[in-house]
Design a binder for these strands. Structure first.
Length: 264
DNA sequence: GTCCCGACTT
DNA sequence: AAGTCCGGAC
Protein backbone atom coordinates (compact mmCIF):
# COMPACT_ATOMS: atom_id res chain seq x y z
CA UNK A 1 0.00 0.00 0.00
CA UNK A 2 2.69 2.44 1.05
CA UNK A 3 4.85 1.21 -1.79
CA UNK A 4 2.09 1.66 -4.33
CA UNK A 5 1.45 5.15 -3.12
CA UNK A 6 5.13 5.97 -3.34
CA UNK A 7 5.32 4.48 -6.80
CA UNK A 8 2.60 6.82 -7.91
CA UNK A 9 4.20 9.74 -6.15
CA UNK A 10 7.52 8.88 -7.73
CA UNK A 11 6.03 8.99 -11.21
CA UNK A 12 4.15 12.18 -10.55
CA UNK A 13 6.76 14.04 -8.59
CA UNK A 14 10.01 12.15 -8.72
CA UNK A 15 12.31 14.74 -7.23
CA UNK A 16 10.48 14.84 -3.91
CA UNK A 17 9.68 11.15 -3.79
CA UNK A 18 12.63 10.12 -1.69
CA UNK A 19 12.23 12.84 0.90
CA UNK A 20 8.53 12.33 1.52
CA UNK A 21 8.86 8.61 1.93
CA UNK A 22 11.85 8.83 4.21
CA UNK A 23 9.97 11.21 6.48
CA UNK A 24 7.08 8.78 6.65
CA UNK A 25 9.38 5.92 7.45
CA UNK A 26 11.13 7.79 10.22
CA UNK A 27 8.05 9.14 11.90
CA UNK A 28 5.74 6.25 11.01
CA UNK A 29 4.39 4.07 13.74
CA UNK A 30 5.74 0.54 13.97
CA UNK A 31 7.45 0.09 10.66
CA UNK A 32 9.23 -3.25 10.82
CA UNK A 33 12.97 -2.92 10.48
CA UNK A 34 13.28 -5.56 7.76
CA UNK A 35 10.67 -3.80 5.75
CA UNK A 36 12.46 -0.53 6.11
CA UNK A 37 15.69 -2.02 4.83
CA UNK A 38 13.94 -3.53 1.82
CA UNK A 39 12.22 -0.25 1.25
CA UNK A 40 15.37 1.81 1.42
CA UNK A 41 16.97 -0.49 -1.11
CA UNK A 42 13.96 0.05 -3.35
CA UNK A 43 14.34 3.80 -2.94
CA UNK A 44 18.03 3.60 -3.80
CA UNK A 45 17.33 1.46 -6.86
CA UNK A 46 14.67 3.79 -8.23
CA UNK A 47 16.72 6.85 -7.44
CA UNK A 48 19.69 5.46 -9.34
CA UNK A 49 17.54 4.48 -12.31
CA UNK A 50 15.88 7.85 -12.51
CA UNK A 51 18.94 10.01 -12.01
CA UNK A 52 21.22 8.09 -14.34
CA UNK A 53 18.69 7.98 -17.18
CA UNK A 54 18.25 11.72 -16.81
CA UNK A 55 22.01 12.22 -16.71
CA UNK A 56 22.38 10.00 -19.78
CA UNK A 57 20.03 12.10 -21.88
CA UNK A 58 22.36 15.06 -21.49
CA UNK A 59 25.79 13.50 -21.09
CA UNK A 60 25.94 10.23 -23.00
CA UNK A 61 29.04 9.31 -24.94
CA UNK A 62 28.66 8.88 -28.68
CA UNK A 63 30.02 5.64 -30.15
CA UNK A 64 29.52 4.13 -33.61
CA UNK A 65 28.25 0.79 -32.27
CA UNK A 66 25.48 2.57 -30.40
CA UNK A 67 24.04 4.30 -33.43
CA UNK A 68 20.95 3.00 -35.16
CA UNK A 69 22.80 2.26 -38.36
CA UNK A 70 25.13 -0.19 -36.60
CA UNK A 71 24.27 -3.70 -37.81
CA UNK A 72 23.74 -6.64 -35.49
CA UNK A 73 27.07 -7.95 -36.70
CA UNK A 74 28.77 -4.72 -35.71
CA UNK A 75 27.03 -4.63 -32.34
CA UNK A 76 28.10 -8.15 -31.44
CA UNK A 77 31.67 -7.93 -32.71
CA UNK A 78 32.08 -4.57 -30.99
CA UNK A 79 31.36 -6.19 -27.64
CA UNK A 80 34.28 -8.55 -28.22
CA UNK A 81 36.50 -5.64 -29.21
CA UNK A 82 35.45 -3.86 -26.03
CA UNK A 83 36.53 -6.60 -23.67
CA UNK A 84 39.06 -5.28 -21.21
CA UNK A 85 39.58 -2.33 -23.53
CA UNK A 86 38.66 1.32 -23.23
CA UNK A 87 35.65 2.28 -25.29
CA UNK A 88 37.49 5.33 -26.66
CA UNK A 89 40.29 3.09 -27.92
CA UNK A 90 37.79 0.86 -29.72
CA UNK A 91 36.09 3.90 -31.24
CA UNK A 92 39.34 4.96 -32.91
CA UNK A 93 39.96 1.43 -34.15
CA UNK A 94 36.37 0.79 -35.24
CA UNK A 95 36.68 1.61 -38.96
CA UNK A 96 39.96 -0.25 -39.32
CA UNK A 97 38.24 -3.49 -38.48
CA UNK A 98 34.85 -3.08 -40.06
CA UNK A 99 36.12 -1.76 -43.39
CA UNK A 100 38.09 -4.97 -43.77
CA UNK A 101 35.47 -7.30 -42.25
CA UNK A 102 32.14 -5.58 -42.88
CA UNK A 103 29.78 -8.53 -42.36
CA UNK A 104 29.37 -12.10 -41.16
CA UNK A 105 30.47 -13.46 -44.51
CA UNK A 106 33.76 -11.57 -44.44
CA UNK A 107 34.39 -12.75 -40.89
CA UNK A 108 33.58 -16.36 -41.71
CA UNK A 109 36.09 -16.31 -44.59
CA UNK A 110 38.87 -14.72 -42.54
CA UNK A 111 41.84 -16.80 -41.44
CA UNK A 112 43.03 -16.84 -37.86
CA UNK A 113 46.28 -15.16 -38.93
CA UNK A 114 44.42 -12.35 -40.67
CA UNK A 115 42.37 -11.69 -37.55
CA UNK A 116 45.43 -11.70 -35.31
CA UNK A 117 47.20 -9.26 -37.58
CA UNK A 118 44.40 -6.71 -37.72
CA UNK A 119 43.79 -6.82 -33.98
CA UNK A 120 47.35 -6.30 -32.82
CA UNK A 121 46.93 -2.55 -32.26
CA UNK A 122 44.01 -3.25 -29.93
CA UNK A 123 45.82 -5.65 -27.60
CA UNK A 124 44.74 -9.10 -26.37
CA UNK A 125 44.97 -9.92 -30.04
CA UNK A 126 45.51 -13.68 -29.85
CA UNK A 127 42.56 -14.25 -27.52
CA UNK A 128 40.30 -11.96 -29.45
CA UNK A 129 41.30 -13.40 -32.80
CA UNK A 130 40.50 -16.90 -31.56
CA UNK A 131 37.11 -15.80 -30.20
CA UNK A 132 36.19 -14.00 -33.40
CA UNK A 133 37.35 -16.95 -35.49
CA UNK A 134 35.20 -19.30 -33.44
CA UNK A 135 32.31 -16.88 -33.79
CA UNK A 136 32.73 -16.79 -37.57
CA UNK A 137 32.84 -20.59 -37.64
CA UNK A 138 29.71 -20.81 -35.56
CA UNK A 139 27.79 -18.42 -37.78
CA UNK A 140 28.91 -20.27 -40.90
CA UNK A 141 27.82 -23.56 -39.35
CA UNK A 142 24.31 -22.20 -38.83
CA UNK A 143 24.17 -20.95 -42.41
CA UNK A 144 24.93 -17.30 -41.78
CA UNK A 145 22.15 -16.85 -39.25
CA UNK A 146 22.64 -15.56 -35.74
CA UNK A 147 20.85 -17.19 -32.79
CA UNK A 148 17.22 -16.11 -32.69
CA UNK A 149 16.33 -17.01 -29.12
CA UNK A 150 17.85 -17.92 -25.76
CA UNK A 151 18.02 -21.66 -26.51
CA UNK A 152 19.88 -21.21 -29.76
CA UNK A 153 22.17 -18.77 -28.01
CA UNK A 154 22.97 -21.32 -25.32
CA UNK A 155 23.73 -24.02 -27.87
CA UNK A 156 25.77 -21.77 -30.09
CA UNK A 157 29.02 -21.95 -28.16
CA UNK A 158 28.81 -18.20 -27.93
CA UNK A 159 31.29 -16.27 -25.87
CA UNK A 160 31.29 -15.53 -22.17
CA UNK A 161 28.68 -14.16 -19.80
CA UNK A 162 29.19 -10.51 -20.68
CA UNK A 163 28.87 -10.97 -24.43
CA UNK A 164 25.94 -13.35 -23.96
CA UNK A 165 24.16 -10.69 -21.92
CA UNK A 166 25.02 -8.07 -24.52
CA UNK A 167 23.59 -10.30 -27.23
CA UNK A 168 20.36 -10.76 -25.29
CA UNK A 169 20.14 -7.05 -24.54
CA UNK A 170 20.81 -5.71 -28.03
CA UNK A 171 19.56 -8.46 -30.32
CA UNK A 172 16.89 -10.33 -28.40
CA UNK A 173 15.73 -7.21 -26.57
CA UNK A 174 15.80 -8.91 -23.18
CA UNK A 175 16.50 -6.99 -20.02
CA UNK A 176 20.05 -7.97 -19.12
CA UNK A 177 22.88 -6.12 -17.33
CA UNK A 178 26.21 -5.36 -19.00
CA UNK A 179 27.95 -6.28 -15.77
CA UNK A 180 31.61 -5.44 -16.18
CA UNK A 181 34.22 -4.02 -13.83
CA UNK A 182 32.75 -0.54 -14.20
CA UNK A 183 29.15 -1.40 -13.41
CA UNK A 184 30.42 -3.58 -10.55
CA UNK A 185 32.41 -0.70 -9.11
CA UNK A 186 29.53 1.74 -9.34
CA UNK A 187 27.02 -0.64 -7.74
CA UNK A 188 29.47 -1.66 -5.04
CA UNK A 189 30.21 1.91 -4.11
CA UNK A 190 26.59 3.00 -4.18
CA UNK A 191 25.12 0.06 -2.25
CA UNK A 192 27.81 -1.55 -0.12
CA UNK A 193 31.29 -0.08 -0.21
CA UNK A 194 34.08 -1.72 1.73
CA UNK A 195 35.70 -5.09 1.20
CA UNK A 196 37.58 -5.60 -2.03
CA UNK A 197 36.61 -9.16 -2.90
CA UNK A 198 36.58 -10.10 -6.56
CA UNK A 199 33.35 -8.65 -7.95
CA UNK A 200 33.23 -11.36 -10.61
CA UNK A 201 32.06 -13.85 -7.98
CA UNK A 202 29.93 -11.47 -5.94
CA UNK A 203 26.38 -12.80 -5.97
CA UNK A 204 24.99 -9.70 -4.31
CA UNK A 205 26.32 -7.40 -7.01
CA UNK A 206 24.92 -9.71 -9.67
CA UNK A 207 21.48 -9.60 -8.06
CA UNK A 208 21.66 -5.83 -7.79
CA UNK A 209 22.64 -5.56 -11.44
CA UNK A 210 19.67 -7.70 -12.43
CA UNK A 211 17.30 -5.58 -10.34
CA UNK A 212 18.67 -2.25 -11.48
CA UNK A 213 18.08 -2.79 -15.19
CA UNK A 214 14.39 -3.69 -14.83
CA UNK A 215 13.21 -0.55 -16.58
CA UNK A 216 11.60 0.27 -19.90
CA UNK A 217 14.73 2.01 -21.21
CA UNK A 218 16.93 -0.90 -20.22
CA UNK A 219 19.51 -0.47 -22.97
CA UNK A 220 19.89 3.22 -22.23
CA UNK A 221 20.29 2.58 -18.51
CA UNK A 222 23.04 0.05 -19.18
CA UNK A 223 24.90 2.57 -21.30
CA UNK A 224 24.21 5.24 -18.71
CA UNK A 225 25.87 3.18 -16.00
CA UNK A 226 28.89 2.41 -18.17
CA UNK A 227 29.29 6.06 -19.17
CA UNK A 228 28.76 7.28 -15.65
CA UNK A 229 31.30 4.83 -14.27
CA UNK A 230 33.82 5.96 -16.89
CA UNK A 231 33.29 9.70 -16.52
CA UNK A 232 32.16 10.34 -12.94
CA UNK A 233 32.32 7.20 -10.76
CA UNK A 234 35.87 6.54 -11.92
CA UNK A 235 38.26 4.06 -10.36
CA UNK A 236 40.71 6.79 -9.46
CA UNK A 237 39.55 10.19 -8.26
CA UNK A 238 35.79 9.72 -8.54
CA UNK A 239 33.95 13.03 -8.84
CA UNK A 240 31.75 12.50 -5.79
CA UNK A 241 31.22 16.21 -5.26
CA UNK A 242 29.34 16.66 -8.51
CA UNK A 243 27.77 13.18 -8.56
CA UNK A 244 24.00 13.10 -9.14
CA UNK A 245 23.74 10.01 -6.91
CA UNK A 246 25.66 11.23 -3.88
CA UNK A 247 22.50 11.96 -1.91
CA UNK A 248 22.00 8.21 -1.43
CA UNK A 249 25.46 6.86 -2.16
CA UNK A 250 26.98 4.82 0.69
CA UNK A 251 30.49 5.45 -0.57
CA UNK A 252 29.91 9.21 -0.51
CA UNK A 253 28.35 8.94 2.93
CA UNK A 254 31.45 7.18 4.24
CA UNK A 255 33.85 9.67 2.68
CA UNK A 256 31.87 12.57 4.14
CA UNK A 257 32.08 10.93 7.57
CA UNK A 258 35.85 10.70 7.24
CA UNK A 259 36.14 14.35 6.29
CA UNK A 260 34.15 15.64 9.23
CA UNK A 261 36.08 13.46 11.67
CA UNK A 262 39.35 14.79 10.34
CA UNK A 263 38.23 18.40 10.52
CA UNK A 264 37.06 18.15 14.09
C1' DG B 1 53.26 1.63 -12.06
C1' DT B 2 47.55 0.96 -12.78
C1' DC B 3 43.57 0.46 -15.50
C1' DC B 4 40.33 -0.71 -19.38
C1' DC B 5 32.24 -2.00 -21.50
C1' DG B 6 36.39 -10.35 -20.06
C1' DA B 7 37.29 -14.94 -21.01
C1' DC B 8 40.08 -18.60 -20.76
C1' DT B 9 43.33 -22.06 -18.50
C1' DT B 10 45.33 -24.03 -14.50
C1' DA C 1 40.37 -18.58 -7.01
C1' DA C 2 44.27 -16.92 -9.28
C1' DG C 3 47.22 -16.14 -13.54
C1' DT C 4 47.45 -14.82 -18.11
C1' DC C 5 46.56 -12.31 -22.17
C1' DC C 6 47.95 -7.13 -24.41
C1' DG C 7 48.52 -2.40 -26.22
C1' DG C 8 47.76 2.13 -24.98
C1' DA C 9 46.29 5.89 -21.92
C1' DC C 10 47.33 8.04 -17.79
Amino acid sequence: MVKRFCQWLYEEWSENFIFVCQEEMVKGTYVRFEYKLRFMREVMVQYLQHRLLKWFDENQRIFPWREDRATKYQQIVSEILLQRTKAETVAKYYDTFFSKFPDWNALANASLEELEEIMKPLGLYRHRARRLYKLGEDIRRRGGRIPGNENELRDSGFIGLYVTNAFELFILRNRKPLLDVNMSRLLKRYFKPGDFIDVRHDKEIQELANDIIEVRRCKELNWAILDYAALVCKTRNPLCGECVLNKHCKYYELSQGDVTEESE
